[in-house]
Amino acid sequence: MSAFGAGARSFRRAAVTLLIAAALYEATARSGYFAAALLPTLPAVAHALWAMLMDGTMLRHASYTLYRVMFGLGLAVAVGLPLGILMGRIPAVEHFFLPLVSVLMPIPSLAWVPVFILWFGLGNVTTILIVFYAATFPMLLNAWSGVRSVNPLWMRAAGAMGANGQSLFWKVIIPGASPFIITGFRQAFLRSWIAVVGAEMIAASAWGLGWVIFDAKEFLNADIMLASLAVIGCIGFGFERLVFGSLERATVLRWGMVRTAKG
């Protein structure tokens, strides 16, 4: 079985599942038991989506959301990745930060939204910081486990071949930890994507995919809400598959360091 054949088959299977789910929804929406304003039919949702795509508002909402995610995720990687690596390498750093991480990590990022609004007001700063909060921990924890899981045999072999300090770090520890680090990127992105929508509902003003859903509620625009949800799902799925999927294929999958995920 070629990889392409397997890919096409899993694509077909996914399409069948989605079509059945869509048909069930459509049947429910047309059954007459629910108000059309609350449960719009799929053509109505598609129409709303098309209108928003055409007048450019959807693009603008999505751009705002993506900007916040990328900014927050960038900060999270800039802090979580080096800190996780240091925690994995230096016991003193681990001992100092581990209690802090253990206490902060279980707090849902959205629980911070009201506090951050008090401190930073509505808008980009608060939403970006919420994303940063949500993404930092998966990045940090994966980098930390990755560094600790580097095969000691690689370290020995590299040491015997004259590697030390810098070269050991860049040529053995970082590539050796890469399966975990890439998983960290992936999880951090997913967490940010979830967090940004929640944060925008409460803390954004005028733009953002989360905000547009919350705003549409005021006017009973269920079609706009569902259209925005579809866009959120598609962008998240696309990033996860395209960006992180290709990163994985170019590195750890090519090196045989992780098994191919099914589906």
Binding site: N151, L153, W154, R156, A157, A158, A160, M161, V172, P175, G176, S178, T251, W255, G256, M257
Partner: peptide
């Protein structure tokens, strides 16, 4: 001044 070969196949760098 010494080269080493271990028993474990995993001694090579997979990357």
């Amino acid at each position: 001044d010494r080269g080493i070969v271990f028993q474990d196949f995993a001694q090579l760098f997979p990357w």
